[in-house]
């Protein structure tokens, strides 16, 4: 099979498989989970057994079921953030590149200022005012993350705007909309695809981190970052409960990164370091 006109490497296949499996888990969570999301079914931190494959959590809920429901919430929120962030960032980035110096200057300076505050710090400040709720979380992360997308989209588009074929379209008398949609966007997409994967990983880890700090997705919803937080104390007793959701987070991110790495390597050309000496 070929993807983007190339044959995936073994590592890329592993990544694709991981993405596939976890997407399926997220979509079919209620069908797959042996227990209800919030049902207390046993003692606190019960050991793994036939009925609870990974044991139970800090108030006796089934770890596997929580992980399955958590996939839905954690991946869903991160995906929503990334999609929204790309819509905002790409639109504004292309506009800045095509729409003239003034617009570009205004947008770029705003983004510069926003980027000079660390993302986590910025998010914490906003969440401290609005309080954590899923819509606030998604919008906050999407807006903050869109600054990075804006930077890339603008950089890519600025490179494309000076291409002769865009100039040829301008000489023909084409309008702004045509230039953006037909001449620039199709050529800007390839570098944006790998960026989408990277931004997803980043947002995914970020949402998990916020939830871990108690400022992201709130109980009673199961989410992986929050599950680590709830079970964190167990580690001092040598109980592995907080590691399972952390492992789940890691596997998903590694999976996406493997695919992104492969996409990036398609475009990379060998450097002088590997020439025959």
């Amino acid at each position: 099979m070929r993807l983007f006109g190339h044959k995936p490497t073994t590592l890329a296949w592993v990544g694709l498989a991981i993405i596939g499996v976890f997407s399926a888990i997220a979509i079919f969570a209620p069908l797959l989970a042996p227990h209800e999301e919030g049902a207390v079914v046993s003692d606190t931190w019960a050991a793994a057994s036939g009925s609870f494959w990974l044991g139970t959590d800090n108030i006796g809920r089934d770890m596997v079921s929580r992980l399955i429901y958590g996939a839905r919430m954690t991946i869903g929120v991160a995906l929503a953030c990334t999609i929204l962030s790309f819509i905002i960032g790409t639109t504004l980035g292309l506009l800045a590149a095509v729409g003239g110096t003034l617009l570009d200057q205004v947008l770029s300076r705003i983004v510069d200022v926003m980027l000079s505050i660390p993302l986590l710090v910025f998010a914490l400040m906003i969440l401290s005012m609005f309080g954590p709720s899923i819509p606030t979380l998604v919008i906050t992360i999407a807006i903050l993350d869109s600054t990075r997308v804006f930077r890339l989209a603008r950089a890519v588009a600025v490179n494309l705007v000076v291409r002769d074929y865009v100039e040829a379209a301008r000489l023909r008398g084409e309008g702004l909309w045509w230039l953006m949609r037909r001449e620039i966007l199709p050529n800007a997409l390839p570098p944006m695809i790998s960026e989408f994967g990277l931004r997803f990983c980043f947002n995914f880890l970020f949402v998990a981190g916020l939830s871990f700090l108690g400022l992201g997705i709130q109980p009673p919803y199961a989410d992986w970052g929050g599950m680590v937080r709830e079970n964190g104390r167990a580690i001092s007793f040598g109980i592995t409960a907080p590691l399972w959701p952390a492992i789940a987070i890691s596997i998903v991110t590694i999976g996406v990164n493997l695919v992104v790495d492969w996409i990036l390597s398609i475009n990379a050309r060998p450097s002088g370091a590997s020439a025959e000496m």
């Binding site: 291409r163 002769d164 074929y165 040829a168 000489l171 023909r172 037909r182 199709p186 050529n187």
Partner: peptide, 28 residues
Amino acid sequence: ALKARTKEDLRKLQFIYQQPDVALNPRQ
């Protein structure tokens, strides 16, 4: 200014570039 020219003026005056590689949109 390019923007102030009429469509007819633009049409009658065409341009051919030095680098055909970058003068054609690779996605069209």
